[in-house]
């Protein structure tokens, strides 16, 4: 319980503020990828590749590939941003820069460092998602897309929660990979399957029981489909509460495991 309560501790927010200060100092270069990446992906895949893909049936409506892709990119953005922050950036701070060890010589304890990293990863994931939303608004205004924006404000807390959950997953690998080179293993064996087999970039319409079971437990699938239904049809669906439950479970289960493994790795505690 102490771990969960640490989210409200000033120490966790001090760690978050430290990361934000560093990021904002380099905002002019750091902001380029989150702005350009969705534009490029939407143009290359949505418009370019989409022009070769005829409109297809999705939940009884005929939609373009660009319309299908746009909400997927939004969900994928929070997933990848939060995961990468908690994996690569956190690993560098922990292992190479020894920032964590410095923080731990103060009133900051490891549970605060873990929460600070997770909150920062989620904050960045949310910020990048908002940039994607602005890009999608631009596509809507220019007539490329026909999206409904009324319910979108509801998804912002969900995107933040998703960021915390995916950060908890990233921190799990930060705690266990022996070296930075070993990060390819979780990336290709866990993250790529989780990210792509999730109805983000393409519909996974297989009737196989395995595929259906995978989609039920894959929180990214529920996030992508929930946002897609909201943006394309202006409907709230069961996918959104399903995503809340799954993200909540990820946080509840993964964070104590992260803390236990990181305690061993960072502090040498058995």
């Amino acid at each position: 319980m102490r771990l969960y309560l640490a989210v409200t501790a000033w120490q966790s927010w001090s760690v978050l503020m430290r990361h934000m200060t560093v990021y904002l100092r380099n905002w002019h270069t750091a902001a380029l990828p989150p702005i350009l990446e969705p534009v490029i992906l939407l143009l290359v895949f949505g418009v370019g590749l989409g022009s070769s893909i005829p409109a297809f049936d999705w939940k009884g409506r005929e939609i373009s590939y660009l319309a299908y892709l746009a909400p997927g990119i939004l969900a994928y953005t929070v997933f990848m941003t939060a995961f990468f922050q908690a994996l690569f950036a956190a690993y560098i701070r922990m292992h190479y820069q020894k920032t964590w060890e410095g923080q731990l010589t103060t009133q900051v304890r490891l549970e605060h460092v873990v929460w600070g990293e997770a909150l920062w990863a989620a904050t960045l994931g949310l910020a990048y998602s908002v940039i994607v939303i602005l890009v999608l608004v631009g596509f809507t205004l220019s007539g490329w897309l026909d999206l409904h924006w009324k319910g979108m404000i509801l998804t912002l807390p969900l995107l933040f929660l998703a960021g915390v959950a995916f950060a908890a997953l990233g921190l799990l690998f930060t705690a266990i990979v022996p070296t930075i080179d070993h990060m390819n293993i979780p990336f290709y064996l866990v993250i790529m399957p989780l990210g792509f087999a999730s109805n983000t970039y393409f519909p996974l319409d297989s009737d196989s029981l395995l595929a259906q079971a995978w989609l039920v437990v894959n929180p990214l699938h529920h996030l992508a489909e929930g946002i897609r239904l909201l943006l394309l049809t202006d409907q709230l669906s069961y996918h959104l509460p399903a995503a809340v439950v799954l993200f909540g479970l990820m946080i509840l289960i993964l964070l104590p495991v992260d803390l236990r493994l990181l305690r061993r790795r960072v502090l040498g505690e058995a």
Partner: peptide, 16 residues
């Protein structure tokens, strides 16, 4: 921890 100062064996500056 408010009463202690710690200088670890390794340098642990915030290099940012």
């Amino acid at each position: 921890n408010r009463l202690i100062g710690v200088c670890t064996q390794d340098d642990t500056f915030d290099t940012d």
